[in-house]
Amino acid sequence: MFEVRLVQGSLLKKVVEAIRELVTDANIDCSSTGLSLQAMDSSHVALIALLLRSDGFEHFRCDRNVSIGMNLANVSKILRTAGNDDIITLKADDDGDLLTFMFESPNQDRISDIEMKLMDIKSEHLGIPDAEYEAVIKMPSQEFLRICKDLSNIGDTVVISVTKEGVKFSTRGDIGNANIVCRQNTTLDKPDDSTIIQMKEPVSLTFALRYMNSFTKATSLSSSVTISMSSDLPIVVEYKIADMGYLRFYLAPKIED
């Protein structure tokens, strides 16, 4: 038996909206630890890792480890019928091929349930070792969204360079070049507005802006975003999910031919 109840159902809606552009089908792995999901985009350029810890749910029952295979476009269609303030319950029998979504309005005057057919998905699972990154940037997620969107008007790729001076986002295109520099800025009364740059080594990497823009679909999950970079590793763009876990996007760099 698998049954979990999430009071802040809007979190689930936001997570699915944030990843459905990159991933069509995915397994949600359920264990006593919580719900997790790992999936690559169809080109194997980006990887998504989601964790929702069990203690963030009002009720969490998972008798044995199960993988629930689902089409994210269908999950999105179903979750769109839930109100933003609804409490969401997910349940599945051990041997069943259906996942039941139950949506309860806050004052319990409307309760809906929708059964969704599950899929058998074979997915490649990658082991991502913990790494010490050369540079870690924490900045307002809205600012990162704006930078990615603005640079997309000029070019297709972004060079992210971290130095003592700050973090520079650069692009070049047919109409010209653009650079945006963000400096460390610790706004003590509003920690969510601050930009914090921790750098062990200067690092500069090139990425496809199309993917970066897709990651920023997660902006509503968190007021800040953490970007981790090392010269020989994919970039990690992480949105914390309040008291529950995280949504991380890994993106392989582009290199000079």
Binding site: V45, L126, P129, L233, Y250, A252, K254, E256
Partner: peptide, 14 residues
């Protein structure tokens, strides 16, 4: 020109 690397070049399949 830049070549796009794949995520599977960095992490091992478990």
């Amino acid at each position: 020109a830049c070549v796009q690397l794949s995520i599977t070049e960095f992490y091992r399949t478990t």
